[in-house]
């Protein structure tokens, strides 16, 4: 019994310590930006996490927009309200699906890769050797990846939403015959720049911070064995997905819940 209590205590303490390490790492990464060399490294990383995620984001956005138009049409047409298809597609994408699905895809596509890469750099002593070369791995390895994630994800979310709306247009207007004018104009009358687009971007920035932070920390803190890295990679995807969904609820409640 006492053993059991002691174990819980030890677990709690080690979790708190891990949170502390994660916080220190984030601090180190955020304040490591202003250097010309790092900007180049960051561009390199934007290529890795952003550009290489572009295809999956565009394809997913297109299909999600198309499916939503298809589903929405069959429901709305019963009420003779198929004109509201535009705002339905646009609002769901801008407020929810754009930021959330992008964050989930990003966690799976780029987050896991970040964890594995940093974990392997640790396992192969590359991080140690950077330290011994008097180069701070936080500045050289962690910071560019963090900033690249922060910059890329909101960009991907915007592209996702735009492509999704075009996909909805493709199915709703070109295929199911909703009037193109009403698709765009009712959308325009309903969607507000600040309320919907900017709030979506804010959500996306929050998700970007959380997902990138988790991914990098899990890699940086991984046990440097093949088992440890595979565990860290799994945890990155699981934890960041849960964090995104949980935070989405909180943010939605703050942004749209209360009049």
């Amino acid at each position: 019994m006492i053993d059991w209590v002691a174990q819980i205590g030890a677990r709690t303490i080690s979790k708190i310590a891990a949170t502390g390490r994660a916080g220190l790492m984030l601090f180190g990464a955020i304040f490591a930006l202003p250097q010309l060399k790092n900007i180049r490294l960051t561009i390199q990383q934007i290529y890795v996490v952003g550009v290489q995620s572009l295809l999956i984001i565009i394809v997913s956005g297109l299909f999600i927009g198309m499916v939503m138009a298809l589903q929405g049409y069959t429901i709305l047409v019963d009420y003779g309200a198929e004109g509201s298809l535009g705002p339905m597609v646009a609002l769901s994408l801008l407020r929810e699906l754009g930021p959330v699905v992008t964050a989930l895809l990003f966690a799976g596509r780029a987050g896991s890769a970040l964890t594995a890469e940093i974990g392997l750099m640790k396992a192969t002593e590359q991080l140690s050797s950077l330290e011994m070369m008097a180069v701070d791995p936080l500045r050289r390895v962690v910071a560019p990846r963090f900033w690249a994630g922060m910059i890329s994800m909101p960009m991907l979310a915007l592209i996702f939403s735009a492509v999704g709306i075009l996909g909805g247009h493709f199915v709703g207007v070109d295929w199911l015959g909703v009037d193109a004018g009403s698709y765009w104009s009712i959308m325009q009358a309903t969607v507000d720049w600040n309320e919907d687009v900017v709030n979506g971007i804010i959500k996306s920035v929050v998700f970007a911070t959380v997902v990138t932070w988790i991914a990098i920390f899990k890699g940086y803190d991984a046990i440097p064995t093949s088992e440890g890295i595979s565990k860290a990679t799994t945890e990155t995807v699981v934890f960041s997905s849960l964090a995104v969904l949980g935070l989405d609820f909180v943010l939605t409640a703050i942004m749209f819940g209360i009049e």
């Binding site: 192969t124 050797s129 011994m132 008097a134």
Partner: peptide
């Protein structure tokens, strides 16, 4: 550390 360097077992390239 600029005055010391270390050759890791794996090379760590």
């Amino acid at each position: 550390r600029r005055d010391m360097s270390m050759l890791f077992q794996s090379g760590a390239l």
